[in-house]
C-alpha cells in the first residue's frame, strides 16, 4: 500500500505541475472562501476573536477545511475523470482493488494540495 501511496503522490504532483495556474487559482479561491467563512463566524460570535485570535489556530482550521474540501467528492470525481480520460479500465484491471486505489489517491491528492 505504501508503494501505491507513493505512486499516487507522484501522480498528483505531476498533475499539479501540469496545471499550475489551476492550482494557484484553486488555492486563492479556497483561501478567500475560508476568509469569508471566518469573518462570518466571527460576526455571529459577536466579534469575539475565534481560536483566541491566534494565527496558528486559524491556520490549522484552514488546513483542516482545505483537506475536507479537497477530499469531499474526491472519489466520485476521480471515477468521473478516469472514465472521461479512458483510464478507468486500466485501474479496474489492477491487482489492487479499485477502492484501494481511489482511497489512496484521495489521501495522496489531499496531502499534495495541503503542501
Amino acid at each position: 500500500m505504501l508503494t501505491l501511496f507513493r505512486a499516487e503522490l507522484k501522480r498528483s504532483w505531476a498533475l499539479i505541475k501540469a496545471y499550475p495556474v489551476d492550482q494557484v487559482a484553486s488555492v486563492v479561491i479556497l483561501a478567500f472562501l475560508f476568509y469569508m467563512l471566518f469573518l462570518g463566524a466571527n460576526y455571529v460570535a459577536g466579534g469575539i476573536p475565534l481560536g483566541g485570535g491566534r494565527i496558528e489556530s486559524i491556520f490549522i482550521g484552514y488546513v483542516a477545511w482545505l483537506l475536507m474540501m479537497t477530499n469531499y467528492q474526491s472519489v466520485s470525481r476521480s471515477i468521473r475523470d478516469e472514465s472521461t480520460q479512458g483510464t478507468l479500465m486500466q485501474l479496474l484491471t489492477s491487482p489492487y482493488s479499485t477502492r484501494q486505489i481511489l482511497l489512496t489517491r484521495a489521501a495522496a491528492s489531499g496531502l499534495s494540495c495541503s503542501i
Partner: peptide
C-alpha cells in the same frame, strides 16, 4: 481498449509508465 488512449494525457511518457507499473503490481 478501443476508443481511449488509456493514458494520462498531461503526464509524461515516463511518469505514465512508472505509475501504471505500480498499478499493475510492480514496486516503484
Amino acid at each position: 481498449l478501443e476508443g481511449s488512449r488509456n493514458l494520462y494525457q498531461q503526464m509524461s511518457a515516463r511518469d505514465n509508465l512508472e505509475y501504471f507499473g505500480v498499478i499493475k503490481g510492480l514496486t516503484l
